[in-house]
Amino acid sequence: MQASNVPQLIIKEVERNNRNRRTFVQVSRDTCGENFSPGEDNRVFFGFQHPHPHGQPHAKQPIAVASVLPALPEDSQPSSSSRSRHYHMLTFLFVKRDYQQMGYGRHMTEHVERVMTSSLPRPVRVQSAAKAVPFFEKLGYTAIGEPIECVCAGTFLFRTLQNMEKHVTMQY
């Protein structure tokens, strides 16, 4: 639960353009030391702290970013494949280090889940870094299969990935 003294997070879906791609990459680098960019078919969300500590309506730079690959309506059959487009796939979620453990990641994830499942009620999947598995478990995700060891991962953070899934119920 987000503490009452923590500023609110304003989340906006942003246009896919070079400026926003660079901003997404910068937040990923600030968070984990690596450059990540969402895929071409991903929807991209930026989270801005509100009110900004210096009194502005919101910061110009996001403190959190997320991207999701939406499920395809025509892919109507569930599959065990991690590449199945039957599911919404949370591809990236980054919260800058100074803002972690404050509820922003939860807020961002829940917002993305609501947006995606409101248009097409399907489960949401994520390939989580091992370190983030407890975070996703708190949000109702469950592990699917065994962890995956990635021999080509750039950093230790992404050497072990866990496929996870959440059945999101519609809330009105």
Rank of each mutant, 00 (worst) to 15 (best):
H86R: 14
A3H: 15
H58N: 01
V25C: 14
N35A: 13
T142C: 08
A129E: 14
R16L: 13
N18W: 15
V112K: 06
G105Y: 06
R16Q: 14
L69S: 10
H50R: 07
H52W: 13
M102S: 02
V168G: 07
N42C: 15
P78D: 13
R122D: 01
T117L: 09
P62F: 12
F36E: 13
Q162K: 09
M108A: 03
V95E: 08
Q56H: 09
R114M: 08
C32Y: 15
P147T: 11
M1W: 14
H107E: 09
G154R: 15
P121A: 15
E146C: 04
L93K: 15
F92Y: 14
V6H: 06
M164S: 05
T23K: 13
P134S: 05
I144M: 14
V115I: 05
F24G: 02
G33T: 13
P78G: 09
H167P: 01
G47N: 03
I144P: 07
F94H: 14
M164I: 09
L9S: 05
P121N: 15
Q127T: 07
T31G: 10
F92P: 00
R19V: 11
M116C: 12
E149N: 05
V168C: 11
K131H: 14
S4V: 12
H111A: 01
C150G: 02
F92G: 03
Y99Q: 07
G39R: 02
F135Q: 00
S128V: 05
F158R: 07
L9E: 03
L157W: 02
R106W: 10
Y104K: 01
K12G: 00
G47A: 06
V151A: 12
R85V: 05
M1E: 06
S80K: 04
D30F: 12
A130G: 00
S81W: 04
P78V: 10
L157D: 11
L157M: 00
F94W: 15
H107W: 08
A153Y: 10
G39E: 06
T117D: 14
N20I: 05
T23Q: 07
E165D: 01
H86M: 04
P78A: 13
F36V: 08
E165W: 03
V124Q: 10
K12F: 08
L93N: 06
F158P: 00
E149I: 13
K96G: 01
V126T: 15
E113L: 09
K131R: 10
P121K: 12
S67P: 02
V65Y: 02
A59F: 04
A132C: 06
S76I: 11
P121L: 07
S37Y: 01
